[in-house]
Amino acid sequence: MKSYLILISSILLFSNCKQEIKKSENFSPLLDYQYLIKTNNDFKIPTETYKIRYKSDGLEITGYLTKPKDLQKYPTIIYNRGGNRDFGTFTPKSLIYQQYLASNGFIVLSSQLRGNMHSEGEDEYGGKDLNDILKLIEINKSLKYSNQNIGVYGISRGGLNAYQISRLTDEIKAIAVVGAPTDPRLDFDTRPEMYEKVLKELVGDTINFKKEYDYRSPIKWVNEINEPTLILHGADDWRVKPINAELMIEEMKRLNKEFDYQIVENGNHGLSTHTTIRNEKVINWFKKYLK
Rank of each mutant, 00 (worst) to 15 (best):
K67S: 00
K67G: 00
K67P: 00
K67D: 00
L71G: 08
K73Q: 13
I77C: 03
R81E: 03
G82I: 06
G82Q: 10
G82C: 09
G83P: 14
N84W: 15
F87D: 13
F90L: 12
F90S: 06
T91G: 07
I96H: 06
I96C: 04
Y97C: 02
Q98F: 03
Y100W: 14
Y100T: 10
N104T: 10
I107F: 05
V108R: 04
L109E: 02
S110R: 02
G115I: 09
M117C: 07
H118Q: 11
E120K: 11
G121N: 10
E122H: 12
E122D: 13
E122G: 10
D123L: 11
D123V: 12
G126P: 08
D129R: 00
L136Q: 01
L143C: 08
Y145E: 11
V152L: 02
Y153I: 00
A162R: 00
S166I: 01
L168W: 07
T169C: 01
T169G: 01
K173N: 15
K173T: 09
A174C: 10
I175H: 05
I175R: 01
V178E: 01
P181Q: 09
T182H: 08
T182W: 08
D183T: 04
P184V: 13
L186P: 07
T190H: 15
T190D: 12
R191C: 07
R191G: 07
E193L: 15
E196G: 13
K200N: 14
K200I: 05
L202C: 14
L202T: 13
V203Y: 01
V203E: 03
